[in-house]
């Protein structure tokens, strides 16, 4: 169903190895229905997509089209109604759409918990948590509790906590929606750096086409009601990218134009 479209010519991005890259996440014919009977909602319908190990995949789609549902399914928190999801034993960290921090713990302790639950010693966990908070530019706020932080700061603590899990797959649900442009640019750089340093597989949900182009190797566009993968775009740009660069702007315009066409066709 879903076809791959390359918007700009040759793809030089990774991986360059001769053998095709390993698949990290195989989603095959997945459907998800919430509730049953008359109140049943078909959130996802026959979604199939393969995400390669080490790939940065962006999910783009209108509100309510099932993006969060798909991430929760990949994380194993929800059960599929139909189809299969295979991550071949890889561990996944999920950054929820809400920060989902524990209100009784400080920012640092929230991050530490992810480490101590994986067997880290208290002292090492403390050190690592402070380091991660520094990466998301929150060094001065380690001892604050979530309710003392702004919305964007909470999201950044959640990002630090997700990174602390040191998982193979990082699922991010609109992580930077509540951030000002300046902080967001900085975190794009940071995320790109962590990703390229570690070979992490990232699935990144966003509403923002430019953000998807800035970060993604590929962009999967989902349709609404029921959610389906409409199209997958390649973003063959070299890294590190800059969000204000001409190339990013051009591809953003091209993808946006295609999306408009798509929406118009659905509207008819």
């Amino acid at each position: 169903m879903s076809d791959t479209t390359t918007i700009m010519a040759p793809r030089e991005a990774r991986p360059t190895a001769a053998s095709p890259p390993e698949t990290a996440i195989t989603v095959t014919g997945v459907s998800k229905t919430y509730g049953d009977g008359r109140s049943a909602v078909l959130a996802l319908d026959d979604v199939s997509v393969d995400i390669a190990a080490g790939e940065f995949m962006c999910l783009l789609g209108a509100s309510g089209c099932g993006k969060s549902t798909l991430l929760n399914l990949i994380a194993g928190l929800y059960h599929v109604t139909d189809g299969t999801i295979d991550t071949a034993g890889r561990r996944s960290a999920l950054m929820f759409q809400e920060p989902a921090l524990f209100p009784w713990l400080t920012a640092a302790a929230n991050v530490e918990l992810a480490l101590t639950l994986r067997g880290w010693s208290r002292r090492n966990a403390r050190e690592r948590a402070l380091d991660l908070l520094a990466r998301v530019r929150l060094d001065g706020f380690a001892s604050k509790r979530p309710h003392e932080l702004s919305g964007g700061m909470r999201q950044r603590v959640a990002l630090a906590r997700a990174l602390a899990q040191d998982a193979d797959i990082l699922l991010m649900d609109e992580p930077f929606g509540a951030l000002d442009a300046m902080t967001r640019d900085l975190l794009h750089d940071e995320l790109e750096r962590v990703w390229s340093d570690t070979g992490l597989t990232v699935v990144f949900v966003t509403h923002n086409v430019r953000e998807a182009v800035r970060l993604g190797d590929r962009i999967a566009v989902l349709t609404s009601r029921p959610g389906r993968v409409a199209r997958i775009y390649d973003v063959p740009l070299e890294r590190p990218r800059r969000i204000e660069s001409v190339e990013v702007t051009e591809i953003t315009a091209a993808v946006t134009a295609r999306l408009r066409e798509e929406v118009a066709r659905h509207g008819r």
Partner: peptide, 10 residues
């Protein structure tokens, strides 16, 4: 959500 967050953290 807290329970799910806990589950994700292991």
């Amino acid at each position: 959500l807290w329970m799910r967050a806990g589950k994700v953290l292991g």
